[in-house]
Design a protein around this nucleic acid. Structure first.
Length: 306
DNA sequence: AAGCCGGGGAG
DNA sequence: CTCCCAGGCTT
């Protein structure tokens, strides 16, 4: 599958490009420890770099070690997560911090297998932290790398809809043998996908491997399928997000006022959820630990947990 | 394998 | 307006 001559060319060209054009992100700073890298990877799950940057900086200043985060109240953690989205990630990160503080002596574990056992850490994040924080030659495959591989090697516009065993095998074949080079390769291809080999309008004029790109060689054929985007307007995700925005802002709201206040805030656009949807979303948020319901007082209240 | 889970900026 | 972003978890 992999021709050694070709892969070494890719390694050299993309690696050299990265040394010049790679962004100086704070979690790439040599002084950023494993904890900062883990925090960044969780925040970056489905969230663009530019939005993570300010939240990560404040987060690390406030909770410089796992134990610091573990001892914080969930309400503060959720507030600090802000508008990054998927706030369950914040709770999982805190749960991971608690396990690190308790079972790992407050030190982020240095193997992919141990990392994978942490809440909120899947295949990608475990490999990324092991590689970027500890120099382990794990096969890192994210959406950027998948797209870059699909184009420059497989000659397709997009990777498969979901990560396949063939993609993982290809990624493994493309890895440099030297561990240090393998880690640099992981970061380089990811950055290439983020800055040059982008989903929408790839900047092939700036690409260090445009001359050997299989996709360009094939005439840049269109995707072999049409991506189906996730619905948003009117979904539970939108309603849940509107309720969480309300809780972050006010800390506590009367259940009776949620409909009016989310609507008034304009968070739902033209959507007018029925009472059943609000009830379902509130119950879901409580079940997820993102909100707590108090039925003790004169009227039911919803608040941030703990 | 498929569905669920936020939010916002770019095109 | 649609699309996409350093995915993970549940069923």
């Amino acid at each position: 599958m992999s021709a050694p001559v070709i892969t070494s060319t890719l390694h050299r060209r993309i690696g050299d490009w990265f040394d010049v054009h790679g962004r100086a992100l704070p979690w790439r700073d040599p002084e950023c420890g494993p904890w900062g890298i883990l925090v960044s990877e969780v925040m970056l799950q489905q969230t663009p770099v530019v939005r993570v940057l300010p939240v990560w900086t404040a987060w690390m200043e406030r909770w410089p070690t796992p134990r610091d985060l573990a001892s914080e109240s969930p309400a503060e953690v959720i507030r600090a997560w802000g508008r990054l989205g998927y706030p369950r990630r914040a709770l999982r990160l805190q749960a991971a911090a608690a396990r690190i503080a308790g079972a790992h002596g407050n030190e982020v574990p240095d193997t992919a297998a141990e990392l994978l056992a942490l809440p909120g850490v899947g295949t990608y994040t475990a490999a990324a932290v092991a590689s970027f924080a500890f120099g382990r030659p794990e096969v890192v495959v994210d959406t950027n790398i998948r797209r870059a591989h699909a184009r420059m090697v497989s000659g397709r516009a997009l990777p498969e809809k979901s990560l396949t065993a063939a993609e993982m095998a290809l990624a493994r074949d493309l890895m440099p043998e030297d561990p240090l080079e393998a880690c640099r390769w992981n970061a380089s291809v990811m950055e290439l996908g983020a800055l040059v080999c982008t989903a929408r309008a790839p900047r092939c004029g700036q690409c260090p491997v445009a001359e050997v790109c299989a996709w360009r060689e094939a005439g840049m054929p269109a995707p072999h399928y049409t991506p189906t985007g996730q619905a948003w307007a009117g979904t539970d995700r939108q309603v849940r997000g509107a309720i969480m925005a309300l809780l972050r802002d006010s800390g506590q709201v009367a259940l009776r006022e949620i409909t009016e206040r989310t609507t008034a805030a304009g968070a739902l656009g033209a959507h007018r959820p029925d009472p059943a949807q609000f009830e379902r979303c509130v119950a879901g948020l409580v079940a997820d630990g993102l909100a707590s319901r108090d039925d003790e007082g004169p009227e039911p209240l919803l608040s941030l947990p703990g």
